[in-house]
Each structure stands twice: as structure tokens, then as C-alpha cells.
Write a protein that binds this DNA or RNA. Sequence first.
DNA 1: TATATTTGACCGAT
DNA 2: ATCGGTCAAATATA
Length: 295
Amino acid sequence: MSSSREKAVQALLYGHGCANKLKLRLNKRKADEGSVSSDHQDLAKTILGCFSDALSVLIDSTTSSSVDQPFEISPTMSSPCPPPLIPNPRRDQRVSPKKRRTSNTEARGENWRDDSPAPIYYDGYLWRKYGQKKIKNSDHQRSYYRCAYNDDHPYCEARKHVQKIQEDPPVYRTTYFGRHACPIHQDAAFPVAFNPADDSEGARMIKFGNDVDRENICPGFQLLANRQDQILKEESTEEQLNGDQDQDQDRDVTENKSCPSDLVLESSLFLEDLDLLDAFEFCPFDQFDFPGCQS
DNA sequence: TATATTTGACCGAT
DNA sequence: ATCGGTCAAATATA
């Protein structure tokens, strides 16, 4: 994918997350106060739909030449390499590879799952792809990623799988396994509430914390992260006080009983802090493009 | 040259 | 026997 298209997708993903957040806020306000006009709700819904449509168009046009290849916005954007013409004889001499993990998701420590119209590019962690596999009864391949710092810190067992599970609108499921044990990530910003207890209660929390490296790369990130953390805490408290309606909505997101496109990007960065971003002259889109931040 | 991705093979779980 | 997760050489890219 070209760089400009990549940036367009990133911007759309950000916009989609913002629109989604706005819609949820309006829904919640209506439930709480009943004072939200249906016009505003419709407007938010329309905006959300526009972002979804635009993403669908871009993603479709990106993947049309390689149907089974997941849509990737990878930092290095490598092109697919052709299959080797000659099998490597040394593969037969391989000695005792690592034992594979069980396929049981609980035993493997599945922590969190997220469905989105495009693979999550930026979730706060750095990942390295180590495999891709055709999955039975699925038209699409599953990509396997592990923590990019796993080479230096083999005890960090964090992994994630990404697979397209629905065609129209496109839905990509990202499943996270294990816990980051590498020093770089275990105290890092983002993503997931890795506490299974939280997950069982329908938590879709993104945890923002300290991340010195990212702050160094993108000035203003820490301020944003701290603010996001505060917002999430407030929302967490609000949700506990909320009625059944919101709880049911959360449960649907977590259990993936239904994954409407207007809910799948709940894990994206939140947006009502655009004023905050302006205040620090921090381009919200730069968060997806660290090389750009560095320049 | 260093680094990341691709992809067929390997192998444990079912 | 089949499936899915991982390995690691080959390859692509910066």
C-alpha cells in the first residue's frame, strides 16, 4: 500500500474511533438523561457509517490483488515474497524445535479479543510477524505475531493472532495471548486489561500508563496518555453506576455475539481530547506513524 | 548490511 | 489423520 493510502486509512481509523466514541456517549447520555435529540444520534450514526464505508473501500482496493492476504499496515510494508523454487534440504536436519502451545485458548492464556474493520496497527506494543496459516473453514489466513522484543527477552510470551473473519463489511479479529514480560512493554502504555476477571465483566479497557520511549519519540504522548487514563477511570466508575442497558452493550462487544461495525473500534484511541491535542500541537494522526513523529 | 516478512516444514494436540 | 502453532531459511526492504 502506498504511503498516502496508508495514512488515509490510519486517519480514517482514528476518525472511526472518534465517531464511535461520540455515538456511545450520546447513547449513554440519552439513557441517563433522555435529553439527547435523535437527530444528533442519527448524525453520529451517519458519520460512523461514512468512516466504515470509506475504510471498506480503501481496504477492498488494497486487498483485491491478494485476496487471502490480510490487510496489513506494517512498519516496513514488505511485499509478499514468492515461494521458494527449491526446497531447503537443511529443514530436514532441524533439531528439536520448541514445543508448541496447546490449542486450547484458556490454557494458552487468551486474554483479550478485538474485532475491527481493519487489523489493529497501533495497539501500543511492537509486534513481529512469525507465521501465517490457512485456517480450516475460513477463506482467510491467520497471521501470527509475537512481541518484537521476544528476541532479546525470550521470557516475554505475549502473542497475538490476526484473522479476517468477515468479508462485507470487513471484520478483522485480533486475539491477544500471554502477558508482556519484557521490560520495554510490561510498564508500557496501552492496551488491554489483561486481567481475565475484568474481561469476564465485559471490560474493554485500554490501559494507558507510563511509556518513556514513546514519550521521547512523540512529545505530548504522555500527556495524552495520562488524560486518557483519567477518562477511562471516570468512565469505569460511570459504567459501574449505570443500568442494564450499558452492561448489555458491553457484554455483546466482549463476547462477540454480534459485532456491528460501529462497535468494533471501541479500542481505538478516544477523541474528545482533540482540544487537548490542539493545545499541545500534537497531530492525532502521528500516533500511527512514529517515523513521521521523529522527523 | 541489518532487519523484518514470507512460507514450507515440522510437530504436538486432538 | 488432521489441524493449528511455531520454526527458520529464503527473501524483501530500508
